[in-house]
Amino acid sequence: MSQAHPALREPWRSLHRQRQGASFGIWVFLASEVMFFAGALMVFGMLRLQHPAGFLAAARATDIWFGSVNTAVLLTSSLTMAVASQAAEAGLRRLALRCLGITALLGLAFLVVKGFEYRADILGGLVPGPTFRLEEPAAQLFFGFYWALTGVHAVHLTIGIVAVAGLAWRGWRGTLPLASPAFEVTALYWHLVDLVWVFLYPLLYLPGRSG
């Protein structure tokens, strides 16, 4: 019997099986996330079909620059996350840790931009209620979804930033071996949070721009 690999955990007999189990587990969790967001987007789509004019007017009131810049930031964070995960798998420690750090910083940058956007939205009267600025009643429905969906997404991203920063910290301290499946699992979660935004962007920011 050779000595067990430091990344190997109970009850797995081999690192390969452990990685497979971890990836399968996170994919099942991500599937539940897909169904959660799909349910919310389904209701959003139904309301949009019933109130096309109000939804177009509301989408035009969102700030397309904040939204587009944040999309680019998240796509870039997915690049560094993918490199970090593959670098960990290949045993490239410095590259993996550096890319994890950049990924967490890009996630933070997204939240900062989103914070400025929320501030502009609140000052611009885009919170549903008595102070709402737009005249179409259905525009309030749109912005109810805007706040809920972007808010839930921001919570997911915050969890991702904490997870990525934790990985970088443990990797840097040397308490987490690079062969651990934690890198791949965290990367898959991060990419899904990116994917959710990929669909929120055309639904919340792009409609009603050409009219």
Partner: peptide, 29 residues
């Protein structure tokens, strides 16, 4: 998004989003 695509605007934007999602799923994930 700034082109007058009419009723096609929504499907085109969502189609591109689906394409992006596929690229992320196949290569990054």
């Amino acid at each position: 998004a700034y082109q007058p695509l009419g009723r096609l605007a929504g499907p085109v934007a969502l189609g591109i989003a689906a394409l992006k999602a596929m690229v992320v799923a196949l290569w990054f994930m």
